[in-house]
Design a protein around this nucleic acid. Structure first.
Lengths: 152, 152
DNA sequence: GTGAACCCTGAAGCCGACTTGAGGTCAAGG
DNA sequence: CCTTGACCTCAAGTCGGCTTCAGGGTTCAC
């Protein structure tokens, strides 16, 4: 729809990311190649949404590779690969949520919970201590969004 | 309590991690220096729990640095730093959980949800598109636990 | 008393996800 | 014209979190 009118700098600012990140995402195929006006990229609003989706998915523990699958399943008929991905990742996302909630609880109760040392806290009692580890468990990755635009 | 009798290899096996990881954690101060018998480390069972806690916390999005604060608050009186950390991280953990749940839902409904393209899915409508980004938001990081022992 | 299996250290390598740097283009305006 | 500022490319650097490598020791069973 909307005509491609945004320049990369504006997109970056509105999305709260660096310009370099947008180019990077494009380079690895996470963002489609935008139109150009004498060499310069021009985006329409939809890129903002895309960036937001990427952000959410990434923080939920998906790797950029996987997000590519999500976001980019061409116009496949609701692709197989997607269902596959779901199969693979759902249990892990559940685990992620579970763990996050434990830590959350612990953190929240840190002051009142009898156990001063997290090592002793019963919250972690039922954690799979022994090698109950299965598939590569959510390769969550570094995500540092600077407060905003780009000093440094 | 328990006498330090486990060798590093056993610990690694029982915890489902590599020996090198245990040494690494020790090096960065996440694990206490264990006793030694003619140069070789000897652990007691408690290290297993510690490793599990680290694992959970890490997957919940805390950096090793932060986990160090959690785990390692000497014998401080339920330290300030802990409360600080909670202050800082709680909202972000909540966000993490929220995001994870969105992705989870999307993934789960991927087949039935009208919107084939994640970009268009209303699930992501209320996401903070604009620069509603605050503090460094949960530097979650690479976590690859191989099925077990160690090929490349 | 020797070989396999395990342990040690320190330095270097690797990976994902970005950022930075060097060197250059382009459009607008004083 | 010529500067300024936003943009361009491509290569290299950075960072967290580990693993691998090289070059030794140790233990234990035979």
């Amino acid at each position: 729809m909307s005509d491609a009118t945004l320049r990369i700098g504006e997109v970056a600012e509105r999305a709260g990311v660096r310009v370099s990140l947008i180019r990077y995402y494009e380079a690895i195929g996470l963002l489609p190649e935008p139109g150009r006006v004498s060499g310069q990229r021009r985006y329409d609003e939809s890129v903002l949404r895309r960036l937001a989706v990427i952000d959410v998915a990434q923080r939920a523990g998906l790797s950029l590779e996987e997000i590519k699958e999500l976001v980019d399943h061409g116009n496949d008929p609701l692709s197989e690969r997607l269902r596959e991905l779901a199969q693979r990742r759902l249990p892990e996302i559940d685990a992620l949520i579970d763990r996050a909630q434990r830590v959350r609880t612990w953190l929240r109760d840190a002051s009142t919970c009898g156990c001063a040392r997290i090592d002793e806290c019963t919250l972690f009692d039922d954690v799979d201590l022994p090698s109950a580890r299965h598939s590569p468990p959510l390769a969550v990755t570094q995500v540092e969004r600077p407060p905003h635009a780009g000093a440094a």
